[in-house]
């Protein structure tokens, strides 16, 4: 009997604590399979966030750190500076990365840290019970936006791929989704590319994900809701890859002179 599908060795035997239908489990598997597929299992360190994925250090079968809320990119920077030839990744949610950790992710990307960040965007704070996140959609009801997110008070959601795409150093920026087998397969290719390009620079994959419990929908309804409501605002796209670099990625080396006038003699 040939194996068609089996659990990757890059995941431990720990049972996922996630809610039924939560996409974190899918994302974990894709990340683990990408690492295994690229033969990196013997040279990888991961950094878990604070949020629903806070227990990721129990799930990835490699050296793992548990970072303070929002600080994973800084922790990963410290690790990578010590182990420059080791694959280092951070796995973060939208509260962790796009709210308290905005400075850390922007500066890690700005410095061009050779790490891979997997950003799970499910438009809500899951672990703390369904509060509004920076990625919560306009009008979306949460436990801290009971009348719906009021864009006059809290503005519109933040698009992290587009934001990071204004920086020079990042080498790969893409957004995928986990809302169907087709999207899941595409997202796995994105993750594989991101890990493959890590030695060239900072790589970033945002994965739109469902939160059935937080959204108050069934797992199946959540997939439909995500495709109908999130994808239009968070377009699925490869924003940056080696043969498709935006203008913003152009390197710049000024001569740092004052002017071209010849220095006066004497």
């Amino acid at each position: 009997m040939a194996v068609v599908f089996e659990k990757t060795k890059m995941l431990t035997d720990a049972v996922f604590h996630y809610c039924p239908g939560c996409n974190h489990g899918i994302a974990h598997r894709l990340v683990a399979e990408s690492i295994e597929g690229l033969g990196l299992t013997d040279n990888v360190i991961g950094v878990a966030p604070v949020g629903c994925a806070v227990f990721a250090y129990n799930y990835f079968n490699c050296d793992m750190y548990e970072a303070a809320h929002g600080r994973a990119p800084a922790v990963a920077t410290g690790i990578k500076r010590v182990h420059p030839d080791t694959c280092v990744f951070t796995y973060q949610g939208d509260g962790d990365l796009a709210s308290i950790g905005t400075a850390e992710i922007v500066h890690a990307a700005m410095r061009g840290e050779k790490i891979t960040t997997i950003f799970i965007n499910n438009a809500i704070y899951g672990m703390t019970g369904g509060q509004m996140a920076p990625t919560t959609l306009p009008g979306m009801k949460t436990t801290t936006s009971p009348y719906g997110r009021d864009t006059l008070q809290c503005g519109h959601p933040v698009r992290m791929c587009e934001l990071l795409n204004t920086l020079v150093e990042p080498r790969f920026i893409a957004r995928g989704s986990l809302s169907s087998p087709k999207e899941i397969n595409r997202s796995k290719k994105l993750l594989r590319q991101a890990f493959e390009l890590q030695h060239e620079g900072f790589t970033f994959v945002e994965l739109l994900s469902t939160c059935p419990t937080g959204w108050g929908l069934t797992p199946e309804q959540s997939q439909q809701w995500l495709e109908r409501n999130m994808v239009p605002f968070f377009p699925i796209n490869v924003f940056r890859e080696p043969n498709q670099m935006p203008e913003a990625a152009k390197k710049y080396t000024p001569d740092l002179k004052v002017s071209d006038d010849k220095p006066k003699e004497g």
Partner: peptide, 20 residues
């Protein structure tokens, strides 16, 4: 047909598929 669509979408990696 062992396409494994089920296994790839399962959030808990609960499905294992083999084929002759």
């Amino acid at each position: 047909i062992a396409c494994a669509a089920c296994a790839r979408t399962c959030p808990d990696v609960a499905i294992h598929i083999e084929k002759e």
